[in-house]
Write a protein that binds this DNA or RNA. Sequence first.
DNA 1: AAAAAAG
Length: 626
Amino acid sequence: MRTSVLRQAGLCRAAFAARHIQISSKSSAALLSQITRVAAVQSLPSASPPRFYSAEATAQTDNAGSDGLITRFADLASLGVHENVVRAITRGMGYENMTEVQSMTISPALKGKDIVAQAKTGTGKTLGFLVPVVQKIIAQEPELAYAPNRFGGKRARSDDIRAIIISPTRELAEQIGEEARKLVRGTGLIVQTAVGGTQKREMLYRTRQQGCHILVGTPGRLNDLLSDSGSGIDAPRLSTLVLDEADRMLEVGFDEELRQILQFLPDRKVLPRQTLLYSATIPKDVVGLARTYIDKNNFEFVQTVKADEVLTHDRIPQYIVPVKGFENIYPALLELVLKGIKESQTNPDALPFKAIVFLPTTAEVIVANQIFRRLKYNFRDIPRTWDIHSKLTQNARTRSANDFKDARTGILFSSDVTARGMDFPNVSHVIQCHTPPNREQYIHRLGRTGRANKPGQGWLIIPDIELQVARNKLPGLPIKRNDELQCATVDAADTGAAKHPHFEHIADAVSKLPHEAFKECYQSYLGGALQGVDRQKLVYALNDLSKFGWGLDQPPAVKPGIAAHLGRVQGLRVESREDRHRMGGPGHRRDLPGRGRRQSDDPFDNVLDRAQSLDRRPSRREQASF
DNA sequence: AAAAAAG
């Protein structure tokens, strides 16, 4: 039985220390300067100062701020929200109090304003945009507030879609669709989802059959359906467009696809529509892009985060574990997992152990899951594990996501496909291995824990060669160094020393992997997953991993094209014809261990000690905390 | 060769 995470009672009692920037604002806050300046010029001549809502200001007026802001869902009726919708929230979904972002966005959105909203992870942004989406459709066609019955009611069409919600991943689109269906239960509104990896024909059949008012989807499939004039899917009277994870949707790659989708939607100048942009992170450069999507004369930028406030939750401790080499990562991860399990068993206040482990490439996600499945034979306490990434079939992805949502305990090994928006209830640990691609992605990944005021903890496992890059990418976050994991500092190359037993357990699990897995892992790291890390150091680190972590005699050979693109790096083995033949041949067995032996004439030669740091010092005012 | 997203 899936329970929605957002147990919202109490959320809105948290201090209302939010900034509420009106279009008339002359705020000079750096983040907003661009957007607010334009708005200020074009709108009210008598600019009023930005309004700040503080805990003091709202303490006495529980239900309404000075702006008539309401904080209880039951009071939405006073803003004209239909009782069937209110009932779906208060009875069906079981929510009573609004979160800050809901309170501050729903009423202006109900008035028809475009919204750019930034609020921390796990604070209910989805419901925040769904309520105005639903109510607007009902306002246009009041009979849609009621489910059709034999006495009447309008039959929904597939070519009269009123709202489109776009998400960066398929699972997030499905999740939003589920929440939307809960919200419209009891009304006549129909929600459909359109994502890749699913049977397009089935979706089209269902949609033509049932109709659609609210379409939730990912860019590729939406584009596919809308560009196909024979699909029967159309939105000539579109009233609302929502970009969830807006900053991500405006990034290169998605932006072009978005532009195409917009081509198939009614021209805003002919048919004005409402646009809602929501995210936990809205970097400065994205604010400029957002401008092209919103009505400059009628919008609000709502931030429930103060100007200099950190975007992560104070109650979620964040730790970094610097580890010596790549080969230390799995032993350290195992140590951390066992420690977390023990904590959940001994500390009655701790959540059951439910972790997401983020890894930088799909190849590594697969390997990690294989390794931990094997480790379960030796460590009975390790819970069930899943993996999820784009190379799985959509069915497998959906199964992993749903199983992990429903699980009390478990470990989900994941690529960045689940980094944003996914609502896995009661995640106790978010563990990020290697340096995340950027600061925003770190914040979103961490946001998979600590949702709806729940506890949780965040961990980073970072090899020494990435440490400076990690500092550059993660300034201004309260990340504390943690030196408690014994496996972190073990020198896997030191044959003399007795290693921590976890190294042997990992070696056993690794020995069951096919050689192809190592090759794919090795190559995947060379493709820019660790942007900013010195290529030469990376190759040496991977060669150490091959030898001391995977027990290989020589590093996997890479395709000639990769070597050519990397240019002048030492220690790279390039694939020869024989290699390809051997690899494809039947019964190939890789040579086992030989761990710890170092031969001076092979490409493993570790010259790391001599390598000079090529990393530049950060020029930012803000420094990393570790 | 690197998350993701259309087949």
